[in-house]
């Protein structure tokens, strides 16, 4: 890996392989797909389940991917990737890449079983989860990755419940627990880190997984010109982290000396509007507990 060229804004290709789609202004998911496709390149097959990316980019005759692609059943992204990679191998294809883009619901909820199977088989596939923390395509419903207190249409704030379930499933560690060869977390707010992780996944001979935080201004209740800024803030306040899992070891890529206040990040978004001081405190406690474990057990930068 060390001999790989570091990708950056200057040397990344100008070629676009995901464009002309109808995603909302400021869509973090489509940015994650666009950047990844620049790295993965033309010699690839793309799989997208029923999600925003297929809704905005896979409606005939307006096909937005510059490569071959398949819009698969919601739960089946990873299984379809396996089928493609095995078929291409048997048909004698060489130098090809198979990549799937599923959202948080398509990965952590309905697609989790198929992902587990594919990672277990260690088929040579690249699985990218773009996490916008709710089912956005259907109009903002709670997913297993909606964080504490998120207001969605199925986690309305009421007398009994204060928005989404307090647990955000830890997909990165769930995938790592399969002893996967390469897994990483990333953020569209740190694009250089993200595209280099995509490059590492591309170079990996087995299954690889990238979990990229990708804000959705529509579902988050934010302005359309703050997407990358929000994604950055999530990392800077410690509610998200940049890390890798390789050779059985976790490695933290960015270890902030001090966190920016979670309150600033949370109050900037409509989905957390009803949060109170005690909620910020709960979020901070969850964050600190998570980081204590990370700093204790993981390699740190």
């Amino acid at each position: 890996m060390s001999n790989m060229t570091i990708l950056n804004a200057r040397n990344i290709t100008n070629e676009e392989l995901f464009f002309g789609h109808k995603a909302c202004a400021g869509c973090g998911g489509s940015l994650a797909v666009r950047l990844a496709m620049k790295v993965i390149g033309r010699r690839s097959y793309v799989v997208v389940p029923a999600n925003c990316m297929s809704a905005v980019g896979f409606m005939y005759p307006a096909m937005s991917f510059g490569v071959s692609g398949l819009c698969c059943p919601f739960a089946s992204t990873a299984a379809v990737l396996s089928g493609i990679t095995q078929a291409a191998r048997q048909l004698g294809e060489e130098d090809y890449y198979v990549v799937g883009f599923a959202g948080d619901g398509g990965t952590a909820d309905i697609g989790l079983q198929a992902l587990s199977g594919a990672v277990d088989r260690n088929d040579r596939i690249i699985y990218i989860c773009y996490d916008n923390e709710a089912y956005m395509n259907t109009g903002v419903q709670e997913s297993g990755l909606s964080p504490y207190g998120t207001k969605t249409t199925t986690s309305p704030e009421g007398a009994k419940k204060h928005g989404a379930n307090p647990i955000k499933k830890n997909m990165f560690e769930i995938v790592a627990a399969h002893n996967i060869g390469y897994a990483a977390t990333a953020s569209v707010g740190y694009p250089q880190d993200y595209i280099n992780k995509v490059a590492r996944a591309k170079a990996h001979p087995g299954a690889s997984y990238i979990h990229v935080m990708a804000p959705c201004p529509t579902g988050w209740g934010a302005e359309t010109d703050v997407t990358t800024q929000l994604a950055r803030e999530a990392v800077d306040c410690g509610l998200w982290y940049l890390a890798e899992y390789e050779n059985g070891e976790f490695r933290l890529n960015k270890n902030p000396k001090e966190f920016k206040p979670v309150k600033d990040y949370l109050t900037g978004q409509g989905r957390f509007r009803r949060m109170r001081e005690q909620d910020f405190k709960i979020v901070e406690e969850q964050r600190d507990a998570m980081w204590a474990k990370i700093r204790k057990n993981w390699q740190t930068a």
């Binding site: 799989v47 698969c72 299984a79 379809v80 990737l81 396996s82 089928g83 493609i84 078929a87």
Partner: peptide
């Protein structure tokens, strides 16, 4: 689903 991916690849 795996068969779908495979047959879609020819």
């Amino acid at each position: 689903a795996a068969v779908l991916g495979a047959v879609a690849t020819g």
